[in-house]
Design a binder for these strands. Sequence first.
DNA 1: AAACTTTTGACTAATGTTGACTATCATTAT
DNA 2: ATAATGATAGTCAACATTAGTCAAAAGTTT
Lengths: 155, 155
Amino acid sequence: MQGQNISDIIEEYLKRILADTHQIEIKRSEIAQLFNCVPSQINYVINTRFTIQNGYVVRSKRGGGGYIRIAKVNLISDADVLDDLMTVIGNNISSTQAFQIIQSLFEDNVLTQKEANLILAAIDQQTLAFEDKRVENAVRARILISILNRLKYDD
Amino acid sequence: MQGQNISDIIEEYLKRILADTHQIEIKRSEIAQLFNCVPSQINYVINTRFTIQNGYVVRSKRGGGGYIRIAKVNLISDADVLDDLMTVIGNNISSTQAFQIIQSLFEDNVLTQKEANLILAAIDQQTLAFEDKRVENAVRARILISILNRLKYDD
DNA sequence: AAACTTTTGACTAATGTTGACTATCATTAT
DNA sequence: ATAATGATAGTCAACATTAGTCAAAAGTTT
């Protein structure tokens, strides 16, 4: 229902393929041409929608025969990935990034829909509501880390 | 419910659509133009007439291809019980009191064990970690109220 | 008159698009 | 080997396109 902009359409295109193949390798310029946009738009899509927070790992190579490879990873079953995620969170994390992480955990069946929604309610921007954005992001990071640790060790 | 002012008319327009479709996605500027008002009036209408108390959930996105999505949700049967709890919580709540509330929600089968544990992890004293106890209790209250509001409807 | 609600617009914030410039790698020429 | 060239992908900042906030002004109700 959503997706009027090119970025959303490209995202959808790539994720549809990834639903089947677990990993894809693209040529940046080809995809750009396919969707009639500049090549750097592909970078934008990848940087905003295929991050580790979203459960994807990207590798690329320049020069002749260059490529961009996107792989879907599992957040919890792979301990290293979870550690990477915690590193990304660090001492502060934005609302958008946090949303992506919870979304990924739901997609990996670590969280039920209801659990995910409750967590999202807790770390929502309007919920935390601090004057200082840095404080807000710091508190969100602490909550998220606390929850991830619970998911990792308890349960 | 007479449509004397523009806000009432816009409200009626949107709710008529929502009577059929359960969810709508609008472009703020389009609706504003349709009713010949400034865009921010749409925000006013949404903030005063499409709240969770009224059974609506709103989500939006800015930038190219941006939108405002309004969904009608089904409030669960004991939604007003949750409202009472929120009144009790007010603007601040201690760790101990919060624990009791979560505990009782678990006993009433509103929350599963895992859901309860995740919430407790989020509002834990060490997680929030504020110097000032008053700030800590205020943040905990906001989180708890947001979660209770989310519990009022399914999905 | 006071209190409350609605209307308006200037300013802010978030997200998306574009292109010039840079970095890296493979191949070919010297 | 080394250098030059061509073929990729990456970065970044300017610009474009939405929606959000806030408070003053205007209108309405008590």
